[in-house]
Structure formats: C-alpha cells, structure tokens
Design a binder for these strands. Structure first.
Lengths: 223, 223
DNA sequence: ACCTGAACACCGTTCAAGT
DNA sequence: ACCTGAACACCGTTCAAGT
C-alpha cells in the first residue's frame, strides 16, 4: 500500500549508477556476497531487475564499482603524513580497516588489480618508498611486494567472513582452532603446537602491520 | 554408441572421492573455475550428478579437496633443504609454481586457512624461521606474515586467470596495461609513470621471491 | 531515454526410484 | 551401499513491451 509520499520519494531519486552502487554496498555489508542478487537489489531499489542493467553492465562491474567506492573513501580519509614509514603504515592500516568493515571488498580487490582503486594505493606506496630511500631500481618490486602483502589479508578477511556465519563469535572460533591445533601430534606439528596458545588473543591488525614493518626494514636495509 | 570395452572400463573404476577430485582438477585446469559444474563433472565421470553427492558433500568441499590435493603434492615435492632461507624460498617458490599452473587453487587457499594443506605450509615456515634465528616471541607473527604474503599472490594469480581468456597472451595484456599507465597524467601519477616501462618484462616469480627476501631480512634484522 | 517484469539458459542440491 | 536423473529453488542476463 504505497502512500503518495512514498511514491514521490521514489520518483525524486531516480536510478543512477551511484545509487545502485550505494544500495549494493548496503546489501553486501548486511548480508555478505551471497546476499547481493539482482533480484534483491531491484527490490531494495523498488524497481525491476532489468532496470539495473541500464546503468550497470554486469554483476562483475557492479562489484568492482562497489569495491572501488570503498577504497576511494579510504584513500581520501588517510591523512597525508610527512614521514614515509608512518604514511605507509597509515595507508596499509586504512585498507586493513576497510576490508575488516567490508570483507567482500577483499575478494574484489585482487580482481581488477590495475584499475583505479588499487592503482591509487600503488601510486601512494611508490611515492613513499622513494621518500624512504629505497633505490629506484627496487621501487617497482617493493611497491608490488607491499601491494601483494596487502592483497593477502584482503583475501584472508574475505574468506573468513564467507566461512563464518554473519554473527559468529570470532574469539570462540579462534579458541576452537587453537584447541584443534593443540590436539595434533606435537612431534609432527611442533611449531603449530608452540603457537597455538597465541592464536586466540592475537591482534590481527598489529600482526598485519608487523609484516609491513619487516618488509620496509628489508627494503631499506638493502638500499 | 558405447562398445563393450568402454562399458567394462567404466565399471572397473567405480566412483570414489579421489576419482571425483581428480576429474575436478582436470576440468578446473582445462577450463577454469567457471567450467566446474556438477553436470560437467557428472558427464566427465559418465554418471549422474546425484552420484557425486554420495562421495562429496558440496561443491565447496570438492574445491577444497582439489586445492588440498595440489598443495599436498607441492609439499611432498619441495626438497627439504638444510639452509633455512633456501628452504623457505623453495617452499614459497613451489607454492607459486603450483598456483601458476593451477590458478583456481589461489581462490581456495585462503578459503580454509587453518585446514591441513595450509597448515602444512605454516608448520614448515615456522620451523625454518626458528632455524633462521627469529626470536620465539616473533615467530608466530613472522610465519603469519609469510603465509599472508603467499596468499597475496595466490589471490592475484587466481584473479588474473579469471579475468583473462584461457588462451590470452600475457605479454600483450601487460603491454596494454603499461600503455594505459603511460597515458595517465604524469604529474598526478609520477610513480606509475616511472615504472610503466618495467611492467611488460618483469618476472613475476622473481618479484615474488624478492618480497620473501625482504620479509626475511626484516625478521632477522630485528632479532 | 529509461524502466518493467516475464522469459531464457543456466546453476547447486535434493530425492524418489532403481540396482 | 551406491547410482540415476528428473525436479526444485534459485541465479545472471536478455528483451519485447511499455512510459
């Protein structure tokens, strides 16, 4: 039973790629990748599924646009810092937080690696590496290594989010894995046994940034 | 028109999870992830699609099993080396090659990060890090960083394979991207401009291993 | 130019029925 | 115990028809 007001609202904000992308992000955040269907999206936008195709060529393009939207917001929000190491850490941390908040971005990030969103990160990383004193001949490899490392957590976070039920208790899941690790044969799995106790309480973000630091240390050491 | 010989063959190798996984790997290698459907698999195995469900619970389980199969083969083939740095490089290189040959493994690897296949890599990495002299308190973070970095190329290779047509010319694709980079505004994209020329000829594997080296350098330097 | 929604060609998965 | 294959409940995408 649509009231006149409701209809007026619908008409006032006509369909556009940006509106579709925003709706897609809402659905993705609320229900994960599986929840985003053209039928759900059409219902959300109070239109027919075919209408969406007027503004967006395919689901692939829609997902890429949604991920680009999130990453561009991160790039805009990351405060520009003078000190290159801090700048790189801030950038990596920002991407980490974005993927943590929108795990579905993780799957998309690697999908179009040379498109604008990731290219922005790449450009920023490269500039800071130069400022850090990494020699010119290594800068390309170095920026790729950092980007690759960032894509690693992207993929992992996305996979974790997909594997776990939307409301799953992270601590409980980790405790469960740790228990499984501890029940393995200690002679065959000495390292896994050794670190099992550290798993439940470990800080994902700090661990991620530790890797960034090691990479930067290595890059600077070989200058 | 099945001959008597053909029918005999079919009956002799009855369905089993291992046979299903092998057939799935063949299809995945030949046609990528999109090609693996239960209908295609059933046709390949000359059976009904329902029969597969007697041995395998879901497509997700099938993909995980196929990926585990590939990774386990890598772990068995990687020659055990005495020198820890060489051992880690060999391990990482082996995983790289496996994902290069079977790009669909990349998507799966992050999917069940604490399952056996990846846990084997994790255990091996941890043992070598200890041998390398990385302090005990850092070993967990260090092994995770290496694993994360490895998952990064896994995700990238998988995405590249999915994006490109099966018979696509890698050199041509890279040359195309490089040309696009060069056409960007040099003032806004100085780094991208600078490295564009290096893109077409760059060695993915060497670049990947350079990152491993930087990580190890950093881990050892902070001992 | 933009939207509608039924129709098409697929999927993964289930299940009654067979052997 | 294991297999068959039709049926179910979905998909992404297309397209004739509307405004």
């Amino acid at each position: 039973m649509p009231t006149r007001t409701e209809r007026a609202e619908r008409r006032s904000d006509a369909l556009s790629k940006q509106r579709i992308v925003e709706a897609a992000i809402e659905i993705l955040d609320a229900g994960g990748e599986a929840a985003l269907t053209f039928r759900a999206l059409a219902a959300h936008l109070a239109t027919g599924s075919g209408a969406i195709y007027w503004h967006v060529a395919s689901k692939q393009e829609l997902l890429a646009a949604a991920a680009a939207d999130v990453i561009e917001r991160v790039m805009a929000e990351v405060v520009r810092r003078k000190e290159p190491r801090k700048a790189i850490r801030a950038l990596a941390g920002g991407v980490f937080d974005a993927i943590d908040a929108h795990p579905w971005v993780g799957t998309q990030l690697a999908q179009a690696p040379w498109e604008t969103a990731l290219l922005q990160i790449f450009e920023a990383l490269g500039g800071q590496l130069r400022a850090l004193g990494v020699p010119a001949r290594s800068q390309f490899d170095a920026a790729c290594a950092l980007l690759n490392y960032i894509l690693g957590i992207a993929a992992q976070n996305a996979a974790n989010a997909r594997a776990q039920a939307p409301g799953a208790d992270r601590a409980a899941v980790l405790a469960d894995v740790a228990r499984r690790w501890q029940s393995l044969d200690a002679a065959a799995w000495p390292f896994v046994h050794q670190v099992a106790a550290q798993l439940p309480a470990h800080d994902d973000r700090a661990q991620f940034l530790a890797g960034i630091d090691w990479l930067l240390d290595g890059m600077v050491a070989r200058r």
